[in-house]
């Protein structure tokens, strides 16, 4: 378990609280809900898969792209593509989408790298599988830094 107890940014703390409040078997069901609720790619990306970045840390193929709006908050939009046969990977993407889509760039950049360890999923998912979530977060943050020149 992590020792940092400061609240997670964006909508992530609420998600972490939801997972923490559940019994072990129910946590997988909640992850499955995130998997099912992951929005489809908008056509401008589904027709141009080359615009998405692969995440090789995930056991199953997932691609993602971030957009940063030209507004005062540098609002971030997140888009993911992962097949239905990879529900765990889709679930991780769904958590990031629910917790961070539409938030300011500074908020997304402030998500700690230890996020996967704050979701109470080590026992039901396994630490090795959680590396996929780390890989997605790292890529999202790197893309945002490239697009905003905000400090890490």
């Amino acid at each position: 378990m992590s020792t940092d107890t400061s609240p997670l940014p964006g909508g992530l703390q609420e998600i972490a609280d939801d997972f923490a409040a559940m019994a072990e078997p129910d946590r997988l069901q909640l992850l499955l809900e995130f998997s099912n609720e992951l929005p489809d790619l908008p056509a401008r990306y589904s027709e141009h898969p080359e615009l998405l970045e692969p995440v090789p840390e995930c056991q199953s193929p997932i691609f993602l792209v971030t957009e940063v709006a030209d507004d005062p908050e540098s609002t971030v939009r997140l888009h993911f593509s992962a097949p239905a046969e990879a529900p765990t990977t889709r679930g991780f993407a769904g958590i990031l989408h629910e917790g961070l889509d539409g938030r300011p760039a500074a908020t997304v950049l402030s998500v700690p790298a230890e996020l996967p360890l704050r979701l109470s999923l080590e026992n039901s998912v396994s630490p090795l599988r959680l590396r996929g979530l780390s890989g997605m977060l790292a890529r999202i943050q790197r893309q945002i830094r490239e697009k905003t020149q905000l400090p890490a």
Binding site: L28, L32, S35, Q59, S60, A84, A86, T88, G91, S126
Partner: peptide, 9 residues
């Protein structure tokens, strides 16, 4: 499975 959620789907 490799994917821990596949069974649940």
């Amino acid at each position: 499975d490799e994917d821990v959620l596949l069974y649940e789907t």
